[in-house]
Design a protein around this nucleic acid. Structure first.
Lengths: 124, 124
DNA sequence: TCACACTATAGACTATTTGTCAATAGGTAA
DNA sequence: TTACCTATTGACAAATAGTCTATAGTGTGA
């Protein structure tokens, strides 16, 4: 065959928006999953419709990658909390992620510009 | 159970960047899959690494949704081409998609702003 | 005239990511 | 002792993305 499959190669996708948002919040201050659930509203997540398991899963996955660490804390009332904080590796990773998002932003801008440059025929 | 799963609810995801890009290109002028492969470079896709099957699949899926229509054309040399064009429904859908991307852009901006506002401790 | 390259489309399969749903458990207040 | 809020986890299903292979027409050069 001439070239075979190629996919997107090295190209990173636009999403996994949740994880960088969590890292940015944790960078400000260590926190536990349940509180982050509300803090995410800052980035457009509606706490009312965001399933907590998505947040917990994202945190555990980042921990498995060494981007955050956690420890149990029972300083508060109610059930124990797992408190997360960002590691130096997490800082590095986030920096890349941010660079990626800036690129993504440029690509979205390119699409929006192209859209705006071609007026809809039935509206002219 | 108190609330049960909630996911992101109605929230549309950021991706499927490919499909809106294709619609924007087709809105400019009808085209066939293979030529779109190169045109996508405008939006940051590297034609060298973009697997053609992704483009064809996206086009067929959009056709099944009634966003585009296609017809065979053998006006050219070489194998037959399936030429696509946008339907009014596709126009409507794209308009929503664009609105969505503007929102996405705002959310990315919010994240970037939050990131920039919190200097990295070990670099202060 | 055969091999090869290029244009063009399609299908099957895998992997990854997202989203849903249910379970568990400590504490408080009625 | 029931109901409710905080808090975390796991299993599973659905959707999306990515890889690889197959097919086929046409032109070019050995």
């Amino acid at each position: 065959m001439p070239w075979g499959g190629r996919g997107f190669g090295r190209r990173r996708r636009i999403i996994s928006f949740l994880q960088p948002c969590l890292l940015v919040l944790l960078r400000r201050d260590q926190a536990h999953g349940y509180s982050l659930l509300d803090d995410l509203a800052e980035f457009g997540f509606d706490p009312e419709f965001l399933d907590p398991s998505l947040v917990y899963r994202a945190l555990r996955e980042m921990e498995s990658l060494g981007l955050v660490t956690s420890e149990w804390s029972d300083e508060s009332l109610g059930p124990q909390r797992r408190v997360y904080r960002v590691t130096p590796a997490g800082e590095e990773y986030l920096a890349q992620w941010i660079a990626d998002l800036r690129q993504t932003r440029r690509e979205i801008d390119a699409l929006l510009a192209a859209y705006d440059a071609t007026p809809r025929l039935d509206k002219v």
